[in-house]
């Protein structure tokens, strides 16, 4: 598994190119019903299709470039870690799901606790402190910006 991943690292541009082509095909498919028209009377499908062709073409160039490239490749600068992505994603989704049922402050507690878990080794009291401080900030924003959601309780 790890071995397979490394190999794929090396052909990153090829992977990107394939993704671009697939993306263009997907958009073409979504736009399949939009009339294209012709150049003098362009329909809503003309411009999107032209863009898809450009993206797919560039994807093709990336793939060819990757195949022609030999020797060692640069390590990617950015690295993905699952933990922050999952924790922060979950924190926003939890907030959006619950906001209208339990009110701003409780929904924010969920957001704060979940997003705090994005980094390892949090102490319990640290999270409590964060919750208290952030609730105070949210409260002052609630007064300042006049948010139309109740602080606590169903909307």
């Amino acid at each position: 598994m790890i071995h397979a991943l490394r190999k794929y690292h090396r052909h990153e541009d090829m992977f990107c190119g394939i993704a671009m082509i697939l993306f263009s095909i997907f958009i073409m498919w979504v736009a399949r019903g939009y009339p294209v028209g012709n150049a003098s009377e362009m329909g809503p499908g003309y411009f999107p299709r032209a863009l898809c062709v450009i993206v797919a073409f560039l994807g093709g160039v990336l793939i060819v470039g990757d195949l022609l490239k030999s020797g060692p490749r640069d390590e990617p600068e950015e690295r993905l870690k699952l933990r922050p992505i999952l924790a922060i994603g979950a924190s926003y989704i939890a907030f959006a799901l619950t906001l209208n049922f339990i009110g701003l402050l409780p929904a924010l507690v969920l957001l704060i606790v979940l997003s705090a878990l994005a980094i390892p080794g949090r102490k319990f009291w640290e999270v409590v402190l964060l919750v208290v401080a952030m609730q105070a900030m949210a409260l002052s924003m609630w007064y300042l910006v006049q948010i139309s959601v109740p602080l606590i309780g169903k909307a």
Binding site: I88, S91, Y92, F95, L104, L108, L111, I112, S115, A116, A118, L130, A133, M134, M137, A138, M141, W142, V145, I147
Partner: peptide
């Protein structure tokens, strides 16, 4: 970063 997230979500 937690502050940023709270601030942003309200905004």
């Amino acid at each position: 970063y937690v502050g940023i997230l709270v601030f942003t979500v309200i905004g």
